[in-house]
Simulated assay, not measured.
Amino acid sequence: MNTIKIFSLAAFFLFSSVVETRAQSVPKSTFKLDVGTETMLALGTKNRDNKLGYGGTLRLNYGLTDKLTLTLTSGYYNYLKTGPLKTFNDNFQVIPVKAGLKYFFAPQFYINGEGGIAFTRTYQNQINSVATGGIGWVYKGLDIGARYETLNGSRGANFNSVGVRIAYGFKL
């Protein structure tokens, strides 16, 4: 019985968000600032020392068209070290600086891609290239997205993760 109630509620919520006629994209030639919180999970055996991550980001959106948005994103990620933690510096810390595009393929639903650099702070400070691809949903300022992100280190080390971002946008 509970499964039917949950499914019905989810279907109603999805249907009501899709039926709305106006897109939640950034209108052409306008700016929007998103403030978001992030939760990430590192993938692969190379990343076994730092699995769970959290952080915050700011994303500046500029409407190129009514469906296409230019994005500039920066923030801070902290991947927690598993096992005994000696100091906060044992964590894997990342400051990404990314530019990209967000395309609204349906009202309130988008795909996005970003690329840029990431400054990492561990026992070896590095500058890495970063690439991100994801999908998301926007409704009345709320922006919920999922993404895959990869950092390519200057010493050949890669760090891959999946993440969820929950943000709220303000028109500028």
Rank of each mutant, 00 (worst) to 15 (best):
N160H: 14
T45R: 15
G145L: 08
P27N: 05
I117F: 14
W137N: 12
K102P: 03
G55I: 02
Q93C: 06
A23T: 06
L33T: 09
F105T: 02
W137G: 05
S29E: 15
I95N: 04
A106P: 01
K46V: 13
K86I: 09
V97T: 10
L72A: 15
L68A: 08
N112H: 15
G156D: 11
T30P: 09
S154T: 09
Y79S: 03
R48E: 15
G75E: 05
T122C: 08
V94L: 07
Y168Q: 05
F92P: 00
Q108V: 01
T69W: 02
L52E: 09
T21G: 11
L151D: 07
F104I: 00
F119E: 05
K171W: 00
F159G: 02
F7S: 11
G75W: 00
N112P: 02
Q108L: 05
T3N: 13
Y168F: 14
P27M: 04
T57D: 13
F105I: 05
S17D: 05
T30M: 11
T39W: 06
Y77Q: 10
G153I: 09
D49S: 15
R155I: 11
I127E: 05
N91A: 13
T71H: 01
G163V: 01
L64P: 01
R165I: 10
S161K: 07
G55R: 01
L142R: 03
G141Y: 11
T82P: 00
Y54T: 04
I117K: 11
G169Q: 05
N158P: 07
F31D: 03
N160C: 07
D66Q: 13
T21C: 11
T3W: 07
I95A: 09
K81H: 07
A42I: 02
N89V: 06
T39K: 09
F7P: 01
F31N: 03
S154W: 04
L72R: 04
G83P: 08
L14N: 08
G169K: 03
V138N: 11
I6E: 14
G133Y: 14
F170N: 13
E114C: 03
E38P: 04
G100W: 04
N128T: 06
Y76R: 04
K86N: 13
F88T: 12
L70H: 12
